[in-house]
Design a protein around this nucleic acid. Sequence first.
DNA 1: CTGTTAGCGCCTTCAC
DNA 2: GTGAAGGCGCTAACAG
Lengths: 335, 335
Amino acid sequence: MARNKVTIKDIADSANVSKSTVSRVLNDNTPVNEQKRKAVLAAMERLQYKPNLVARSLAGGSSLTLGVVTQNIGSPFYDSVTQGVIHGMSGSDYSPIFVDGQWDRETEISVVQTLIDRNIDALIMVGGTLDVHEIEELRQDKPTVVIARHIDNVAIPSIAIDNVQAAKKAVEYLIKSGHRRIAHVKGIPEHQDAVDRFKGYCEALSDAGIELEEELIVNGDFSSQSGVLAIESLLMRGATFTAIFASNDEMALGIRLGLYRRGIRVPEDVSIVGFDDQPGSAYMTPPLTTVAQPASDMGEAAAEIALNMLSKKEYELPKLDAELIVRESVKQIRP
Amino acid sequence: MARNKVTIKDIADSANVSKSTVSRVLNDNTPVNEQKRKAVLAAMERLQYKPNLVARSLAGGSSLTLGVVTQNIGSPFYDSVTQGVIHGMSGSDYSPIFVDGQWDRETEISVVQTLIDRNIDALIMVGGTLDVHEIEELRQDKPTVVIARHIDNVAIPSIAIDNVQAAKKAVEYLIKSGHRRIAHVKGIPEHQDAVDRFKGYCEALSDAGIELEEELIVNGDFSSQSGVLAIESLLMRGATFTAIFASNDEMALGIRLGLYRRGIRVPEDVSIVGFDDQPGSAYMTPPLTTVAQPASDMGEAAAEIALNMLSKKEYELPKLDAELIVRESVKQIRP
DNA sequence: CTGTTAGCGCCTTCAC
DNA sequence: GTGAAGGCGCTAACAG
């Protein structure tokens, strides 16, 4: 496990060839006499050779590393994406290295820089705050793929679900279940996800001929705490409703607690639908009905695309859809 | 933001000194004439010089990088530790790079290797499955600090709370609240944490003169799912109890759901205490009484210690204690 | 096909 | 103090 000091020179000597030849079999990019190739391989095995990635990297070769920029803070969803990336990369010669952007622009720029300083071969951005223009700039330097975020630039492969449709599906389910007075707790206004989900909510109501009521719409910030506050706010203004659609599960959690504190039962009095199917949502009491983003699949697909880009292979963006997971947090109202 | 091609040669020329001198002011390890030093600094500023970490690393210098091995899977606790590490490192010249061990020995060995291949300056291990001996081996190569795990080797700085004491405190609280029949759901048997927490449970009962009952002890694996199963198992065997101490919050979540499904109320019928105070536990219904590990503080302390080791400074292990967070999931029984 | 020759950007003796 | 060399381990033209 300790650091290996065996270099290609050692194995070159040991196999009676030149360093170049060793390098060649190592990179498998130039034909090499089968005899020598085997001798080299044998020597590598014998001396337990392990390539020095730093040197290889400096010499202009690949560093066999993919950089992944995540935004971990309080978001199980991003964690799942990350796991997907790891999975999608296992089996390849590459390994992932993660840095945390903390949902902060400055931080993100800085961590991307460390990645670049580290000479990564490709970049995977999970969410993030950089604008399209900046990402485009990065892409010119390194193959870049963006996950969990829709990018309006065909040159930048991005993998994201259609939040509008997904939210719409969720609200339609509530309507189909007999609910008419459906409240909505929004996410961070600057987040496109939040905007899209709100849009889906509006469309679903509109399609069903239900009028949008300002009174039933509350601002949130994707945190559990804001879910609790949202309930306070709704109740304070005397709003009446039989269901709530939360822009994410985190807030649904807070909403559920807020209702509990007021003695309002779920789903008997009020039904809840969330978004993300984050770990734990299936274990809420009652288990939460929510929209499942294929987080892991998204991560995995991104890893594969990045790998394909590196080997100049063709790739195509997968078509991933969110799925409504129906659990016991919604009451069926039969009029 | 793009890759900088300015090298020390450029700034050497620009400042009319030799590359060596530039390198010296860069590393600040050899006296340099104040005039030249300023000239160099000015040139660096002017040309926007950014050191090439890869080259520096290859040449034997520091890579200004700390490697962090986490075990993310389904554990908000580890995520908090990670955030602490990030925080503890901000402000220094170093930056963290993360890899995921996935709680799998093979994987862990492999990711540690990528870190070492990357020539990191120090290693921080958050939990993990490597044995003390292996860690000791790593330590001889790189400064290493271990978090969230007790290591019996004074040479390896480790930061962890006393799980026995913490668990004991939790169970004592239940006893103090009037509970006598307290069940326990264990964690993964191979995990020292699980073993220690079970031990704390035993000690608390013993100290209170309550006999240990096999019937009240169930195996779990730290997952929510195993919490649900634990309840099934307890009920199946006809056990009676008024409280449950779970080896972690994740299982407490499952336990709560299991009880809900059986129509058993919390805390009216059964009280629950968890361990970890993971994000979300405060938002359970009812909010969970649990043991809060100072996860973030632990991470931060680890980062500082690692940094100090690198600069050969003295350091001391912080004394961190877990704290019982009392919330509404425990009923006070007054006989 | 393969060995030789140059570096990649930086750090570190070693003389001056 | 400081510049000139040499080298970290590897890759990439270059000639054979």
